[in-house]
Measured scan of single mutants.
Amino acid sequence: MPSETPQAEVGPTGCPHRSGPHSAKGSLEKGSPEDKEAKEPLWIRPDAPSRCTWQLGRPASESPHHHTAPAKSPKILPDILKKIGDTPMVRINKIGKKFGLKCELLAKCEFFNAGGSVKDRISLRMIEDAERDGTLKPGDTIIEPTSGNTGIGLALAAAVRGYRCIIVMPEKMSSEKVDVLRALGAEIVRTPTNARFDSPESHVGVAWRLKNEIPNSHILDQYRNASNPLAHYDTTADEILQQCDGKLDMLVASVGTGGTITGIARKLKEKCPGCRIIGVDPEGSILAEPEELNQTEQTTYEVEGIGYDFIPTVLDRTVVDKWFKSNDEEAFTFARMLIAQEGLLCGGSAGSTVAVAVKAAQELQEGQRCVVILPDSVRNYMTKFLSDRWMLQKGFLKEEDLTEKKPWWWHLRVQELGLSAPLTVLPTITCGHTIEILREKGFDQAPVVDEAGVILGMVTLGNMLSSLLAGKVQPSDQVGKVIYKQFKQIRLTDTLGRLSHILEMDHFALVV
């Protein structure tokens, strides 16, 4: 994948999101292997301009796509893939009243899908469409860049269908997702969380590099694949309309690839034109409109599966009536509230959605109805927002919020430890010299600072030695090549209790 991002070429006709291997024109390309080798690009942008032909009021008969309808489940399912879809609609009884809503608040519980998330729908649909058009064949390999849930859905379907599955996901995604993927037989590649989507090191860039190296491999490409919004247009939206008897006044959905909100909203605009569509985008993402909503100094966020630093091709923002931004604290607070007060075992993005819903639905009156999409299960986040310690460490809970008995030293300040200034190293000294210094002084790690004293990161003896043994660096290389740029900081005025929580999850903390 090139470091400079080429513009994806656009073909003359058809839909841009065809499933299957992508040609340089962004659509299915038939021909000899030699032709494909000559024409197939190194990668295709996940934010390529959409060429979708959908228009409100256009006859369904003019759609270029294969459409399906929700099917009634048999008493005995032939395999677990038949437990994807037909998820329950559940009334939220307490939270709406707590925040003064007059309307009825309903939750579409997508964590009841077989793999635990709304992404099971698009995973199965992308595979079925690729099999139907002859792209996927027995023994082929599926590769997908994902925040985890699409990966789980694909790995689940691949396990049943017999495909090899490789999932490329950023490091910030939970260990629970990784464990589930491994249990399903998927191979996992992790990428830096802070890598831009168009960087060769991003999950998108690495996935395309693997595709170019592995024979008979395919990126189904949830960011561009029409099967993504079509899955929701054909099934999720129809289920909502049936469950609500066609009567709903507002739908609120958090947005990642945009397939969920695009597919549902398009069908609702056709069948229930008075329904307002509300999009939820986390602070630090750029999906919301108008652009002024996205202006923030924050560039990272903890909530998973929603928000991006690019506009995915499948996201149709014209069908969203209003956007709201959400933050991590309210997302996790509301997710825990949904679990504790409503018994809905949902993930953090569901918290984002409901946090926005109780604001947006203030305009609705008694007798009206708001539906929220709860995308995934708490299963993926047992060591994250479900953990009091994690919430404390991230600053989303305060010590006084917890009532468990603490040891005698818990409320003492870090400054009472009488710490001395640490050994520091410059980023320009060599790895070999740094190892000598650390061994001589008896230290395992040291902060790396520039000549102005600005902290650049941390270097550890173990990481340097393993990097040297693996051949990633040489003793003569500058130590700046092996620094940890993500590390926890703590102030002298913070409590030892807070430091204790940090050290339970990290090997060190830097006192500043």
Rank of each mutant, 00 (worst) to 15 (best):
R164T: 06
E62A: 14
G256P: 00
G205H: 06
R125I: 03
K119Q: 05
R51Y: 07
R58L: 09
L230E: 08
E213R: 11
V189P: 07
L28F: 13
K25E: 12
H67A: 07
K177P: 00
K94G: 14
Q242S: 13
K172S: 04
I167N: 07
S23R: 10
H65L: 00
S19K: 12
P41S: 14
N212E: 13
G31T: 08
N93C: 12
R132D: 10
E131S: 15
S73H: 11
D140Y: 08
M250K: 07
D140V: 08
A226Y: 09
L42N: 03
C275R: 05
G258V: 00
M173C: 05
E128C: 07
I264M: 14
Y223K: 00
K75Y: 09
C244M: 06
R196Q: 13
G274I: 11
S117L: 03
R51N: 08
V189I: 09
W43Q: 07
E239H: 05
R91E: 09
D35T: 14
C275H: 01
V178M: 08
A195D: 01
L124M: 14
G162W: 03
Q243C: 06
L77I: 05
F112Q: 06
G274M: 10
V90A: 04
S27C: 12
E131I: 03
S50Q: 08
P21I: 04
A253C: 12
C272V: 13
S117Y: 04
N93F: 02
P138I: 03
A8L: 14
A265H: 06
G11A: 12
I240P: 00
T5N: 12
P49R: 09
S117N: 06
H232P: 01
E110Q: 05
D129T: 08
L77F: 15
T257I: 00
K36F: 15
F197S: 07
P215C: 01
K102P: 04
A60M: 11
P64W: 02
D35Y: 14
E239F: 04
Q242C: 14
S217I: 01
G263A: 00
D35L: 05
Y233Q: 00
R182L: 10
E9F: 08
G115H: 07
V204W: 06
K177F: 00
A8N: 12
P70V: 03
V118H: 12
H232S: 05
L28D: 09
Y163E: 01
Q222K: 04
G134R: 12
R209M: 08
